[in-house]
Amino acid sequence: MEPIPLLYITGILMNANGCRPKKLKVGGMEIRSKRKDIRQQVIRDNNPDIIFIQESDIVLRNICTWSFPHRCYQSIGGQKAGIIFDALTFTECTAEHPQERIRQIYEYRKFTLNENLSSASLLDRMQAVILQTKGPCIRKFLFVSWHGPHKLERNLKIKMLKDLKYLVSLYLLENDIPVVIGGDFNLDLSKENLFQRPFPPVFDPHVIPNAQFVLCDYLKLDHRPKKIDYIITSRTLTNVSCKPIDVWEHLLVKYPSLPLAYHTAVLDHDSLSVQFPI
Rank of each mutant, 00 (worst) to 15 (best):
N47R: 11
G182M: 00
Y108W: 05
F185K: 07
G11P: 00
T89V: 11
L267K: 00
C64D: 07
L215E: 01
Y171S: 14
A211G: 09
L215N: 04
L167Y: 08
Q275T: 06
V179W: 07
Q127K: 11
T91P: 00
T236M: 15
R154Y: 05
N114S: 13
D204S: 10
R103Y: 06
I177C: 06
L272D: 08
L173N: 12
E30H: 14
N47A: 15
E92M: 10
I105M: 02
S273R: 07
I83D: 01
C64A: 10
S75F: 14
I31N: 04
E100D: 06
P3G: 15
G77S: 12
C64W: 14
L131K: 01
E96W: 10
H70S: 13
I84G: 09
R61F: 08
F68Y: 14
L6I: 07
L7H: 15
N193P: 02
I63F: 10
L88M: 08
I83N: 00
T91S: 14
N62W: 07
R20L: 10
S119I: 00
E2K: 09
Y8T: 13
L252D: 04
V168D: 05
K25L: 06
E100N: 09
L161V: 06
F90W: 14
K191V: 15
L267V: 01
V179L: 15
I83R: 01
Q74F: 15
Q132K: 12
N46R: 04
R35L: 04
K159G: 08
K159L: 07
D124M: 03
F276P: 00
L189Q: 07
P178V: 12
I181P: 00
K227I: 15
N193W: 08
K227R: 11
S118F: 10
T89H: 04
C19Y: 02
T94H: 11
L267S: 03
C93S: 09
K23F: 02
